[in-house]
């Protein structure tokens, strides 16, 4: 139950495209690690390499020191859910899990347990074709939990869930990490996972752009939104601090805080109609990383 996921100088090349580029990171047990990046950043490819579904061009991805393909009973060591769509629409949830349990050498008794755990027991004998996206997410989680594994790898597990479902998944992930398991979840929206993750690995275009505790990811250049009548006078007073404007025309100011912006306007004799710190928090830091990587 104390196995880490270690990705070491991983590279995956598809003809001309470098999907994963010299990527290294470690996912530690007992914590929830968020694996973030915009769509197309290489998250899913990396997860598939970790799980032995895709071969790496170079580098290694190990779980507890072993490649996924060398695990004797992989479902009992690593639970994974990669897509909410990889179910046969004509098969019931219970049968899907039975097939999975049989193939992975997991006791059939676990099927009922995980169905109960994810709240699908009542719908277990319906065909998956009639399931909502949220129910498929729950079935994916059930499939990952089937072998009671010490390591969980979940691709976009919150996508498609309703607010109640999101709360439920977050608390489940916290419980799983508190039990000492290694939990890796991917997402392309930081706000979706920021309440649940301890650590972050942020990638963009296959490269790591941030690794560390979530607290370390803060916008390095906080912005202030400020507006006045007339705007031109305010813009002149703030001069070079103005870096842009919001959708409704207010000025975006960087390099000074809200108090300083207020003082400058007061000194210029301008009455402000709006003054606020840009409320984007961690998402701002996240976007900044991605923007930084692009420029």
């Amino acid at each position: 139950m104390t196995q880490a996921i270690e990705v070491d100088r991983l590279t995956k090349r598809y003809r001309e495209v470098l999907a994963v580029d010299d990527l290294s990171f470690t996912v530690r047990p007992g914590r929830v690690t968020g694996f973030l990046g915009p769509n197309g950043a290489g998250k899913t490819t990396t997860l598939r390499i970790i799980l032995g579904l895709v071969g790496a061009s170079s580098g290694r991805a190990n779980i507890g020191g072993q490649r996924y393909r060398s695990l004797v009973r992989p479902l009992s060591e690593v639970g994974a859910s990669l897509e909410a769509t990889s179910f046969h629409p004509g098969r019931t949830a219970r049968d899907h899990l039975r097939v999975q349990a049989t193939g992975g050498g997991v006791s059939r008794g676990r099927v009922g347990v995980v169905l109960e755990q994810v709240g699908l027991a009542g719908a277990a004998d319906r065909r998956v074709g009639g399931y909502s996206l949220g129910m498929r997410q729950r079935l994916g989680l059930a499939s990952a939990l089937l072998g009671d594994p010490g390591v969980l790898v979940l691709d976009e597990p919150i996508n498609g869930l309703d607010p109640e479902g999101i709360r439920w998944v977050r608390s489940l992930l916290r419980v799983l990490a508190a039990e000492g398991r290694t939990v890796l979840i991917s997402s392309h929206v930081l706000s979706e996972v920021e309440q649940v993750v301890d650590d972050l690995v942020v990638i963009d275009r296959g490269r790591s752009v941030y690794q560390g505790p979530i607290g370390g990811l803060v916008a390095s250049r906080p912005r202030v939104v400020v507006d006045a009548e007339p705007r031109a006078a305010l813009a002149a007073a703030l001069a070079s601090h103005v870096v842009g404007e919001t959708d409704d025309g207010a000025l975006l100011v960087e390099g000074i805080d809200a108090a300083e912006a207020g003082r400058i306007a007061f000194a210029a004799g301008i009455a402000l109609t709006h003054l606020a710190a840009e409320t984007q928090g961690l998402e701002g830091g996240f976007l900044e990383l991605i923007r930084g990587a692009e420029s």
Binding site: P74, S86, F87, G103, G104
Partner: peptide
């Protein structure tokens, strides 16, 4: 249907 993924997760060989 994409079920090859869970199949190979259960038995990667």
């Amino acid at each position: 249907t994409g079920t090859l993924t869970p199949t190979l997760l259960a038995e990667p060989r």
